[in-house]
Computed example of a mutant assay.
Amino acid sequence: MASIILASASPRRSELLQQIGVTFSVQPADVDETPRPGEPPEHYVERLARDKALAVSGSSPGVLVLGSDTSVVLNGVILGKPANRDEAVETLLTLSGATHQVMTAVALAEDDRCQSRVVITEVTFRSLSRAEIEAYAASGEPMDKAGSYGIQGLGGIFVSKLRGSYSAVVGLPLLETAALLADAGHPVWESWPNSLESGT
Protein backbone atom coordinates (compact mmCIF):
# COMPACT_ATOMS: atom_id res chain seq x y z
CA MET A 1 0.00 0.00 0.00
CA ALA A 2 1.17 3.55 -0.68
CA SER A 3 2.63 5.64 2.13
CA ILE A 4 -0.12 7.41 4.05
CA ILE A 5 0.18 10.47 6.28
CA LEU A 6 -2.48 11.57 8.75
CA ALA A 7 -2.40 15.38 8.84
CA SER A 8 -3.75 15.50 12.40
CA ALA A 9 -2.36 15.28 15.92
CA SER A 10 -5.66 13.85 17.21
CA PRO A 11 -5.09 10.56 19.05
CA ARG A 12 -8.72 9.65 18.37
CA ARG A 13 -8.23 9.87 14.59
CA SER A 14 -5.08 7.77 14.86
CA GLU A 15 -6.96 5.10 16.82
CA LEU A 16 -9.75 5.01 14.24
CA LEU A 17 -7.32 4.62 11.33
CA GLN A 18 -5.52 1.83 13.19
CA GLN A 19 -8.90 0.16 13.78
CA ILE A 20 -9.38 -0.39 10.03
CA GLY A 21 -5.84 -1.66 9.51
CA VAL A 22 -4.22 1.41 7.95
CA THR A 23 -0.48 1.89 8.42
CA PHE A 24 0.40 5.57 8.50
CA SER A 25 2.62 8.27 9.92
CA VAL A 26 1.45 11.46 11.61
CA GLN A 27 2.30 14.95 10.42
CA PRO A 28 -0.04 17.59 11.84
CA ALA A 29 -0.95 20.40 9.46
CA ASP A 30 -0.61 24.03 10.46
CA VAL A 31 -3.54 25.89 8.87
CA ASP A 32 -5.63 28.91 9.78
CA GLU A 33 -8.87 27.56 11.29
CA THR A 34 -10.71 30.89 11.36
CA PRO A 35 -14.20 30.63 9.81
CA ARG A 36 -14.81 33.00 6.92
CA PRO A 37 -17.62 35.58 7.26
CA GLY A 38 -20.94 33.94 6.45
CA GLU A 39 -19.31 30.57 5.73
CA PRO A 40 -21.77 27.68 6.29
CA PRO A 41 -20.49 25.13 8.86
CA GLU A 42 -20.59 22.32 6.28
CA HIS A 43 -18.35 24.30 3.91
CA TYR A 44 -16.07 25.29 6.79
CA VAL A 45 -15.27 21.73 7.90
CA GLU A 46 -14.72 20.57 4.32
CA ARG A 47 -12.43 23.51 3.57
CA LEU A 48 -10.33 22.83 6.67
CA ALA A 49 -10.05 19.11 5.94
CA ARG A 50 -8.88 19.90 2.40
CA ASP A 51 -6.52 22.66 3.57
CA LYS A 52 -4.90 20.29 6.07
CA ALA A 53 -4.47 17.48 3.54
CA LEU A 54 -3.10 19.78 0.83
CA ALA A 55 -0.75 21.62 3.23
CA VAL A 56 1.04 18.38 4.09
CA SER A 57 0.74 16.92 0.59
CA GLY A 58 2.59 19.93 -0.81
CA SER A 59 5.77 18.86 0.97
CA SER A 60 5.25 15.10 0.50
CA PRO A 61 5.07 14.29 -3.24
CA GLY A 62 3.59 10.92 -4.20
CA VAL A 63 2.21 10.31 -0.70
CA LEU A 64 -1.46 9.98 0.26
CA VAL A 65 -2.43 12.52 2.91
CA LEU A 66 -5.59 12.36 4.99
CA GLY A 67 -6.98 15.55 6.51
CA SER A 68 -10.05 15.81 8.69
CA ASP A 69 -12.01 18.36 10.67
CA THR A 70 -14.98 18.14 13.01
CA SER A 71 -17.42 20.81 14.16
CA VAL A 72 -20.32 20.60 16.56
CA VAL A 73 -23.18 22.76 15.28
CA LEU A 74 -26.28 23.88 17.18
CA ASN A 75 -28.90 25.93 15.33
CA GLY A 76 -26.39 26.80 12.63
CA VAL A 77 -23.74 28.01 15.10
CA ILE A 78 -20.36 26.26 15.37
CA LEU A 79 -19.48 25.32 18.94
CA GLY A 80 -15.69 25.13 19.00
CA LYS A 81 -13.26 23.83 21.58
CA PRO A 82 -13.72 25.54 24.94
CA ALA A 83 -11.14 28.13 25.97
CA ASN A 84 -11.59 27.25 29.64
CA ARG A 85 -13.67 25.25 32.10
CA ASP A 86 -16.41 27.89 32.39
CA GLU A 87 -16.87 27.92 28.63
CA ALA A 88 -17.12 24.11 28.60
CA VAL A 89 -19.87 24.30 31.24
CA GLU A 90 -21.81 26.92 29.26
CA THR A 91 -21.56 24.86 26.06
CA LEU A 92 -22.80 21.71 27.78
CA LEU A 93 -25.70 23.61 29.36
CA THR A 94 -26.65 24.73 25.85
CA LEU A 95 -26.46 21.16 24.49
CA SER A 96 -28.45 19.68 27.41
CA GLY A 97 -31.76 18.23 26.22
CA ALA A 98 -31.14 19.37 22.65
CA THR A 99 -30.30 17.81 19.29
CA HIS A 100 -27.19 19.10 17.56
CA GLN A 101 -25.25 18.19 14.45
CA VAL A 102 -21.71 16.89 14.29
CA MET A 103 -20.16 17.72 10.92
CA THR A 104 -16.98 15.86 10.04
CA ALA A 105 -15.11 16.19 6.77
CA VAL A 106 -12.37 13.91 5.51
CA ALA A 107 -10.10 14.74 2.59
CA LEU A 108 -7.52 12.66 0.75
CA ALA A 109 -4.79 14.51 -1.13
CA GLU A 110 -2.06 13.24 -3.42
CA ASP A 111 0.19 15.95 -4.82
CA ASP A 112 -2.24 18.70 -5.95
CA ARG A 113 -5.29 16.41 -6.26
CA CYS A 114 -7.80 16.26 -3.43
CA GLN A 115 -11.11 14.48 -2.88
CA SER A 116 -13.32 15.09 0.14
CA ARG A 117 -16.53 13.99 1.82
CA VAL A 118 -18.67 15.56 4.54
CA VAL A 119 -20.66 13.47 7.02
CA ILE A 120 -23.41 15.01 9.15
CA THR A 121 -24.62 13.12 12.22
CA GLU A 122 -27.47 14.15 14.52
CA VAL A 123 -26.76 13.71 18.22
CA THR A 124 -29.31 14.21 20.98
CA PHE A 125 -28.35 14.83 24.61
CA ARG A 126 -30.63 13.92 27.49
CA SER A 127 -31.25 16.66 30.05
CA LEU A 128 -28.08 17.12 32.09
CA SER A 129 -27.87 18.27 35.68
CA ARG A 130 -25.61 21.17 36.59
CA ALA A 131 -23.74 18.88 39.01
CA GLU A 132 -22.79 16.32 36.34
CA ILE A 133 -21.81 19.06 33.89
CA GLU A 134 -19.52 20.57 36.53
CA ALA A 135 -18.05 17.14 37.30
CA TYR A 136 -17.45 16.48 33.60
CA ALA A 137 -15.78 19.86 33.08
CA ALA A 138 -13.59 19.20 36.14
CA SER A 139 -12.42 15.91 34.57
CA GLY A 140 -10.65 17.89 31.85
CA GLU A 141 -12.07 15.72 29.08
CA PRO A 142 -13.99 18.53 27.31
CA MET A 143 -11.00 20.81 26.92
CA ASP A 144 -9.65 19.64 23.54
CA LYS A 145 -12.99 18.61 22.06
CA ALA A 146 -15.30 20.37 19.62
CA GLY A 147 -18.56 21.02 21.43
CA SER A 148 -16.89 20.34 24.80
CA TYR A 149 -17.53 16.60 24.87
CA GLY A 150 -16.13 13.28 23.73
CA ILE A 151 -18.67 10.60 22.83
CA GLN A 152 -16.00 7.90 23.14
CA GLY A 153 -15.17 8.92 26.72
CA LEU A 154 -17.01 9.96 29.86
CA GLY A 155 -19.32 12.16 27.76
CA GLY A 156 -20.84 9.07 26.17
CA ILE A 157 -23.38 8.89 29.00
CA PHE A 158 -24.95 12.17 27.83
CA VAL A 159 -26.07 10.85 24.43
CA SER A 160 -29.65 9.58 24.27
CA LYS A 161 -29.84 9.21 20.48
CA LEU A 162 -27.50 9.22 17.49
CA ARG A 163 -28.51 9.23 13.85
CA GLY A 164 -25.59 8.80 11.47
CA SER A 165 -21.95 7.81 11.85
CA TYR A 166 -20.52 7.14 15.32
CA SER A 167 -16.93 7.19 14.05
CA ALA A 168 -17.54 10.60 12.44
CA VAL A 169 -18.61 11.97 15.83
CA VAL A 170 -15.39 10.60 17.33
CA GLY A 171 -13.44 12.39 14.60
CA LEU A 172 -13.07 10.34 11.42
CA PRO A 173 -15.85 8.74 9.33
CA LEU A 174 -14.48 5.26 8.63
CA LEU A 175 -16.81 4.33 5.77
CA GLU A 176 -15.98 7.50 3.83
CA THR A 177 -12.27 7.32 4.66
CA ALA A 178 -12.05 3.76 3.36
CA ALA A 179 -14.01 4.76 0.24
CA LEU A 180 -11.60 7.63 -0.53
CA LEU A 181 -8.62 5.30 -0.15
CA ALA A 182 -10.28 2.69 -2.38
CA ASP A 183 -11.06 5.32 -5.03
CA ALA A 184 -7.37 6.27 -4.97
CA GLY A 185 -6.48 2.64 -5.72
CA HIS A 186 -5.60 1.60 -2.18
CA PRO A 187 -8.46 -0.35 -0.54
CA VAL A 188 -7.69 -0.84 3.15
CA TRP A 189 -8.61 -4.53 3.12
CA GLU A 190 -5.60 -5.33 0.94
CA SER A 191 -3.34 -4.78 3.93
CA TRP A 192 -5.38 -6.80 6.42
CA PRO A 193 -3.56 -9.80 7.95
CA ASN A 194 -4.57 -13.28 6.76
CA SER A 195 -4.78 -15.60 9.75
CA LEU A 196 -5.16 -18.67 7.52
CA GLU A 197 -1.90 -17.94 5.69
CA SER A 198 0.02 -17.05 8.85
CA GLY A 199 -1.15 -20.26 10.51
CA THR A 200 0.23 -22.63 7.86
Rank of each mutant, 00 (worst) to 15 (best):
L174A: 12
S96Q: 01
N194K: 08
G80F: 02
L181M: 11
S195V: 14
A168Q: 09
S165A: 14
V77A: 13
A109T: 10
Q19M: 14
F125R: 06
A2K: 05
A146F: 05
A7T: 06
K52T: 07
V169R: 07
R130Q: 15
E46A: 11
A146G: 12
S165V: 14
A53Q: 05
A105W: 01
S195I: 13
T94H: 07
V102Y: 02
L154G: 14
E46K: 04
T200D: 13
R47G: 12
P41K: 00
N75R: 09
A55K: 07
V63N: 04
K161Q: 15
G156Y: 06
S8V: 09
V188A: 13
L6S: 01
D32Y: 01
P35S: 10
L74S: 09
D144H: 08
R50D: 04
R47Y: 02
V123Q: 08
D111A: 08
L66K: 02
R12I: 09
L175H: 13
Y166D: 14
A55G: 04
Q152F: 06
G185C: 02
W189N: 15
S191Q: 14
M143Q: 13
A7D: 05
P61F: 03
D51V: 06
D144W: 01
D112I: 05
I133L: 08
S148G: 13
G80C: 04
L16W: 01
Q27T: 15
P28V: 08
P41W: 00
T121I: 12
